[in-house]
Each structure stands twice: as structure tokens, then as C-alpha cells.
């Protein structure tokens, strides 16, 4: 398996000006300014193999887009190294550009005042795609993304979903090896989201395009990404599949127990490391840390309050984990 994206100890630090408060502060700001160093990305390392789809997720300001900017060559890192499709992004930007496609969900790469078809044809010349190849790619994209009905509409008149499809087509005309997608389904309706996911899956399967995508949408991740990388405060806090993410981040499990008779519970539960969630008649729900207690421990403890008829254990939902990550 060849490595398509390689990041080694990639770091990015910025200088920020800070503003003082109040009238006196404002006047002082005329003469001298305070600044501070912010570390947006801190020694991030990972490898992405050819043909992988990786979800790159984390809360706003965690360093997602800074990482992507470094891997596309837009930003030069403060320290660390990276290789994408065999190029060092920031020193070989133009060569790299020929090998990558970039789609930023909220900002179009197309020319605002031109019909979609003209934008695509212009990109053919920008990327110097041979006519034959362009025709093939264009036909495929137009078919799969159903561009036919709005090819002659100026981009500014397209709906968000149509524009997104146009942007995706635009990013693929030159057979990129790596595709960066920033929130590719943001603001779209359910049908449009599904279509775009299917298209990306197809592209990855058939053309072996490596995809790195950021998203807030759990369904994107579930449908597309076998692997996710979670970044928070500039650090990678997880790199692996979804199940392992749950093991790592969500440590609290829930046990639901049905007693024969409504039990009378006391604060002994708390001291033993359990947390009562609710009690309705015979049914009791408690939460516990998987690192401190095992399920049999909890069950044994609960039998002291009466005989138990039935029990079940719930793992936290992936959705709640993702929510948890984005709220952090």
C-alpha cells in the first residue's frame, strides 16, 4: 500500500493581536499593541494510504482547516514535514495542484458570473487536460452528478446543492489523486446529501481517489469513512475506526435493570461508583465508568436491593460521541 498523504510533526503557530478594553485601552492601542502566539496545529502526524477515505473531524478552531491548508500548500507550517502525492505541498505548490482537487463547501471554486459549462471548460485549460480525457471525465461527472439540467445556468443562480455538484465536477476533471473536501454536504437537503455521498464512494471505489474530508455530519462519516482522525486544540486525540473512538472517548456505559419489586435505593450506589439516572417502578437505570467497574460488578451490587428479572447494557451512541467532540 502506497502512502498518499504523509504528515510528520506538522505544527502551525500564529501571532495574534489582542485588543484592550475600554476607552483608555482604545487610546493606548493607537501607540502599542499586545500580541500573543496561538498554536493552531501542534505536532500532528498521520499517514493516509492510496485509496483511503479519512474523516478529519474536530470542533471549530481545533486546527482542521489549518491542517488542510498546509496539506494543499496554501500554508507553510512553522515546523514539521509533509508529502502529498510525492510533493512537498508548500514548496511544490503548483506541481501539487495538478494532483489534487479541493472543494470548500461554503466557497465555490467556480466563476460566479459564468455558466457552469464554461467554468468547467475554463478549468480544462487551467489544468491542461487533454480534450479526450476532459470529455470522458466531463461525461462521467455530468452523468453521475446529474448536471445536465443546469449546465448552462450561471453559477450564481444555482441552488446550493447544484453548485456543490458543480464544484465536485470541477475538482475532478484533471484526475486528481487526492481530493480534499471541506464540509461537502453542509446546507444540503437529505436527497442531495445522499447523492453526493454515493458519488464520493463511487469515485473512491472506481478511481481509487484518496479522500480527506472534514464534516459535521455523522452520516457522512458512517457512510464514507472507515477511519477517522479527531483533532482537538491542535492535537490528534484519535486515529482509527469509529468503534475504537467510542472505546476511547465514551467511557460511560448505561445498565438498565428490571427488579421483581420496586427497590428502595440508597446513596451506597454513588460510593460504589454508579450514578442513578432514573427509576420508574421496577425499572432502574444506572451509569458507570467502564474503567472502574465491570458489568458483573454492577449487577452484583444491584442484587443487594432485590432480585433481578432482566437487564441490558447500552453503549453510548456514536452520534452522541460526535456531538460530544464538536461541543468540546
Amino acid at each position: 500500500m502506497t502512502t498518499q498523504i504523509q504528515a510528520r510533526d506538522l505544527s502551525k503557530r500564529f501571532e495574534r493581536h489582542t485588543r484592550r478594553a475600554g476607552m483608555v485601552g482604545a487610546m493606548r492601542g493607537l501607540f502599542d499593541r499586545a500580541s500573543e502566539t496561538v498554536t493552531a496545529v501542534d505536532a500532528v502526524s498521520f499517514d493516509v494510504a492510496r485509496g483511503e477515505i479519512v474523516g478529519y473531524i474536530g470542533p471549530n478552531g481545533a486546527g482542521k482547516s489549518t491542517t488542510i491548508k498546509m496539506l494543499t500548500g496554501v500554508l507553510t507550517p512553522s515546523s514539521g514535514e509533509a508529502t502529498v502525492a510525492g510533493f512537498t505541498p508548500w514548496s511544490e505548490r503548483r506541481k501539487l495542484a495538478q494532483q489534487i482537487g479541493v472543494v470548500f463547501g461554503q466557497r465555490t471554486q467556480l466563476w460566479w458570473d459564468l455558466p457552469l459549462i464554461e467554468s468547467l471548460e475554463l478549468l480544462q485549460h487551467v489544468y491542461r487536460v487533454p480534450e479526450q480525457r476532459f470529455r470522458e471525465n466531463f461525461t462521467m461527472a455530468a452523468e453521475l452528478l446529474e448536471l445536465g439540467s443546469f449546465l448552462n445556468t450561471p453559477v450564481r443562480q444555482l441552488s446550493l446543492g447544484q453548485r456543490m455538484r458543480g464544484d465536485l465536477a470541477a475538482a475532478l476533471l484533471h484526475d486528481p489523486q487526492v481530493l480534499y473536501l471541506d464540509e461537502p454536504t453542509i446546507g444540503l437537503d437529505l436527497v442531495a446529501k445522499t447523492n453526493i455521498r454515493e458519488f464520493l464512494a463511487h469515485l473512491n471505489r472506481e478511481a481509487g481517489v484518496t479522500i480527506l474530508l472534514t464534516t459535521h455530519d455523522l452520516a457522512d462519516i458512517e457512510r464514507l469513512c472507515k477511519r477517522i482522525i479527531v483533532i482537538d486544540h491542535g492535537h490528534i486525540v484519535h486515529d482509527g475506526d469509529l468503534a475504537r473512538l467510542r472505546d476511547k472517548i465514551a467511557t460511560e456505559r448505561t445498565m438498565t435493570v428490571d427488579f421483581d419489586d420496586p427497590p428502595t435505593l440508597d446513596d451506597q450506589l454513588e460510593t460504589r461508583g454508579m450514578r442513578l439516572l432514573d427509576q420508574t417502578g421496577q425499572r432502574v437505570r444506572v451509569a458507570f465508568e467502564r474503567s472502574r467497574l465491570t458489568a458483573p460488578d454492577v449487577l452484583t451490587a444491584l442484587t443487594e436491593y432485590g432480585s433481578i428479572r432482566d437487564m441490558s447494557i447500552e453503549e453510548p451512541s456514536i452520534e452522541s460521541i460526535i456531538q460530544h467532540i464538536y461541543k468540546a
Binding site: 494543499t72 495542484a97 487551467v126
Partner: peptide, 12 residues
Amino acid sequence: EGTFDRNLVRPM
């Protein structure tokens, strides 16, 4: 507006 980036990711 953050749209300058696109000029940097194209081979031109």
C-alpha cells in the same frame, strides 16, 4: 472573505 485560497490550489 477567504476566497483567495483557491488561487493557490490551482496550477496557474
